[in-house]
């Protein structure tokens, strides 16, 4: 049972990735496509955080630490970086959708598409 419980976060990651891929491939509204990308991002971040968990580990905060042996906080650092980068890409994607809407009055991928061939 505990084996199953320990794997729940990984199952959640897999489910989120599937949801994200489905959204990106099935939706034509550009805002929804971006939502798919953001869900994919959350899935990867969740994956990294889950990897960082060590059972019984000591958080690397030096005040009042019970010992000197602590968990190396690499995955947490990675996740923070990845979240910051995610904000930048999401903002840029949304601003581009705004421009597309200003040009064409559409956020539908098929209707706003001008370049062909």
């Amino acid at each position: 049972m505990s084996e199953f419980l320990a794997n729940i976060p990984f199952l959640a990651v897999a489910a989120l990735i599937c949801v994200a891929l489905y959204i990106m491939m099935s939706q034509r509204n550009l805002i929804k496509v971006v939502m798919g990308v953001v869900i994919l991002e959350s899935a990867v971040n969740l994956f990294l955080v889950t990897l960082g968990y060590r059972e019984g580990g000591v958080a690397p905060i030096f005040t009042n630490a019970p010992g000197t042996l602590m968990v190396l906080p690499v995955p947490q650092a990675l996740t923070l970086t990845s979240i910051v980068i995610g904000v930048a890409t999401t903002a840029l994607m949304l601003s581009m959708i705004m421009l597309i809407y200003r040009h064409t009055g559409e956020t539908d991928a098929e209707k706003s598409r001008k370049v062909k061939g």
């Binding site: 990308v37 990867v44 890409t89 994607m93 581009m96 959708i97 597309i100």
Partner: peptide, 19 residues
């Protein structure tokens, strides 16, 4: 408009690839 469209496509592809 083609510039915005090109940039948007590049960004989506790149973000998914980077993830």
């Amino acid at each position: 408009i083609d510039a915005v469209e090109g940039g948007f496509k590049y960004l989506i592809v790149s973000t998914v690839a980077a993830l």
